[in-house]
């Protein structure tokens, strides 16, 4: 701990040379550097920056993608707030994120702890626990349709063992959403790998010191593991929220947004507006709102994270 703090301190107090004019060598290096990263710069400008600006522009118009756009000003944005289906899709998306993200963090943490056991066959466990994350979402969607089938699916078989009534989980709005939340946990392997890396970065000496001081395993977990994993938790939280807001494929394949718009997630509604109804202007306005919501949530999480994320000790 001391060593790490000192190292950090050393970095902070490194003498800073006053900025002078660029030397020819520095200029040359800059040019070369820029040239080397130019494919990335061109790619970002063409495929990220330009589409965002273009999207903002057409969100202010009525545009089918074919005819010339008609200027609407903020018409699409005002329409959005009066659109009950959009509010339904926001509710569905928040419901999904609100359940899937925290559960996903817990599941990923448990997986990471399991992957981190000091046993000989740990490599096998790591592979076995990570494999579900490799399966594409569309393939998992088809598997889940079978798993939750009222007649033959394993979920209903287990319920009927306890005398429960057979249910068509995908036939009701709330249970259909919960099925999609459950399905998201099969992708927890990716987040678990981040946690695993975080766990491996925690110096063993801390645990040894805690053991000597008489700390229980639970105390070690809550006082050492969790605080030192907070950077990884923050990262997984932000990527989880971002993924949660963009949930699409599962509903597209399993329920097509039904029943009664119960799984009509925001991205699915956006997609329908763009490609089924050819309302590209409105769909762009929806995309801009999603972008802003994502930015605001990320900022919020960063603000809150200052209170709980501990960067000091993690290596």
């Amino acid at each position: 701990m001391t060593a790490t703090t000192e190292a950090t301190g050393a970095r902070r107090t490194a003498p800073s040379r006053p900025r002078t004019a660029w030397s020819p060598r520095e200029k040359s290096n800059l040019t070369k550097g820029l040239l080397f990263i130019s494919p990335w710069i061109v790619g970002t400008l063409a495929f990220v920056v330009f589409p965002i600006i273009y999207s903002v522009a057409i969100s202010l118009t009525k545009y089918s993608g074919m005819q010339s756009p008609q200027w609407l000003g903020l018409g699409n944005y005002t329409r959005m707030f009066k659109d009950p289906v959009m509010w339904t899709s926001i509710y569905n998306t928040l419901f999904y994120s609100g359940w899937a993200v925290p559960i996903g963090l817990i599941v990923a943490l448990l997986l990471a702890l399991a992957m981190n056991r000091n046993v000989r066959e740990v490599a096998f466990y790591r592979t076995a626990l990570y494999i579900p994350s490799l399966a594409p979402i569309f393939a998992l969607s088809f598997i889940f349709i079978v798993l939750v089938n009222p007649g033959t699916g394993i979920a209903n078989q287990i319920i009927s063992l306890f005398g429960g009534e057979q249910r068509d989980f995908l036939g009701e709005p709330t249970t259909a959403k919960l099925v999609i939340v459950a399905m998201a946990q099969l992708g927890a392997g990716n987040a678990a790998l981040i946690f695993l890396a975080g766990l491996n970065n925690i110096p063993q000496t801390l645990y040894e010191a805690a053991r000597i001081d008489g700390a229980s395993a639970f105390q070690s977990f809550t006082r050492i593991t969790l605080p030192l994993l907070t950077p990884a938790i923050l990262f997984n939280l932000i990527t989880g929220i971002s993924g949660g807001l963009q949930v699409f494929t599962q509903a597209y394949i399993m329920t097509r947004g039904g029943p009664n718009n119960g799984t009509l997630f925001y991205m699915l509604y956006l997609y329908r507006n763009a490609f089924s109804y050819a309302n590209l202007g409105y769909a762009s306005a929806l995309a801009i709102l999603l972008f802003l919501a994502g930015v605001v949530l990320a900022l919020l999480v960063y603000q809150v994270s200052r209170r709980f994320v501990n960067y000091e000790i993690s290596a």
């Binding site: 088809f142 349709i145 079978v146 089938n149 009222p150 007649g151 033959t152 057979q166 249910r167 068509d168 995908l170 036939g171 009701e172």
Partner: peptide, 14 residues
């Protein structure tokens, strides 16, 4: 309705 949907999903699975 729910019983009918269960019947359908049982006898006409994907």
């Amino acid at each position: 309705y729910r019983r009918v949907q269960t019947f359908l999903a049982t006898y006409r699975p994907p």
